[in-house]
Write a protein that binds this DNA or RNA. Structure first.
Lengths: 220, 220
DNA sequence: TTGCAATTCAAACAGTTGTATGAAACTATC
DNA sequence: GATAGTTTCATACAACTGTTTGAATTGCAA
């Protein structure tokens, strides 16, 4: 299939530009200029702009998902089919957080691209994200095996909250740094992971009824 | 000042269209068609498209923030300057959740607009959101008064996680419903509020050191 | 009614966007 | 080294965008 040089130059340039400036104001002309190729090359190699974006996103999220499942599988095998809930949650949020946080200067283009994809939401990426449900179901299954006494509803809410904390922290990392005047150190990724996992674990293991009741009383 | 009819017709039409179809593919021509006014009216009354969007968003978020502060102030006065952490958190996430969730058929255009604004992220709205930090600081202050033994870092992380759970649940409410096959009832807003408040409270009150240590052990 | 300002309108503008075209330049195979 | 297939290129295209313009219309005060 020839040199492929143009193709990968486009991919690299697009990822860099999207990561830096967002999807909103990066045009095909910006990309081909950065890549040093002709304007028509994008449509020739990828079909359309949307397919280029989709290919970028699919590549990166497949990598993340593979890493997640690898950690999950390892944990379940070690525990004979049942992994501790902390380890499952860590497998769920760890790869994403590690990929997207950390000192800015050592943050990869791929990571910055994924942050963008998480902040801005463009149609081709949204379509792909919708297919992620099957992947999450695997985690829900592992969590149910780990906490067999827990109701499905609680499992799903715990999963939801774990993802919420991870993604929101990534999306709003800048604001949290500013709000806390630098006291919250987003570069210490392992501390962030530990915090998210810790809270999500509490959410899943604490006596739900009491907590809920207490909270409802407070509402009065 | 005149009739103001055109102005408010534009506002209503824009809110409706943005709520339904998102910012991405609603043009000024769509808006004026829906409002039944001339194309130039938007620029005449608002200056530019971005200022129209900004006015919509500012109006709505001022209303939400006022409601939040009202609840917070009432709680602190009742407690003689110190409100229980649950009540503070409820004042923080309650208005937003109540505004954006609930049965779809009784969900206001305003609420659906704010969901959009939370999912998609367009420049004029992003600029305004950045000014929200002062507002959050007031909550951080109340939380510090409520939990004087807690470190600032923990306070900010708790605040971050509370907002994370609320916003993510709004943003991904559709996906959570699908993932849980309807088992998680997003229409029961008070249950959602209770869950978020409950988990956030645990995050803020649980013995951080132990939880963190346990979580770090699990990482090995 | 007259006059003046505020508002509405149709039309055009200027810019940008992603995509398509067809010729030119390559590359590898025979 | 001719040929067929792939890849590049300059250029044009068609559509759509937000915004501006200047004339027409309206509403209101004198």
């Amino acid at each position: 299939m020839a040199s492929d040089h143009t193709r990968s130059a486009i991919l690299a340039a697009a990822e860099r530009l999207y990561a830096d400036r967002g999807f909103g104001d990066v045009t095909l002309r910006d990309i081909v200029a950065e890549a040093g190729v002709n304007l028509a090359a994008v449509n020739y190699h990828f079909g359309s702009k949307d397919e280029l974006i989709a290919e970028l996103f699919v590549t990166r999220s497949i990598a993340t998902n593979r890493e997640r499942l690898r950690e999950l599988k390892a944990a379940e095998e070690e525990g004979g089919g049942r992994a501790p809930i902390e380890v499952i949650l860590r497998a769920l949020v760890g790869p994403t957080l590690r990929g997207c946080l950390g000192p800015e200067n050592q943050r990869s283009t791929a990571a910055r691209f994924m942050i963008r994809a998480s902040i801005e939401s463009v149609p081709p990426i949204r379509r792909i994200k919708n297919r992620e449900i099957d992947h999450l179901r695997k985690f829900a299954g592992a969590m149910r095996r780990s906490l067999p006494d827990r109701s499905d509803v609680d499992i799903y809410w715990g999963l939801n909250f774990a993802l919420a904390m991870a993604h929101h922290t990534i999306r709003e990392s800048e604001r949290l740094t500013k709000l806390s005047e630098g006291k919250c150190d987003l570069d210490d990724v392992e501390d962030v992971v530990a915090r998210v996992v810790s809270v999500a674990t509490m959410a899943l293991t604490a006596g739900r009824t009491e907590a809920k009741a207490a909270s409802k009383v407070a509402a009065r």
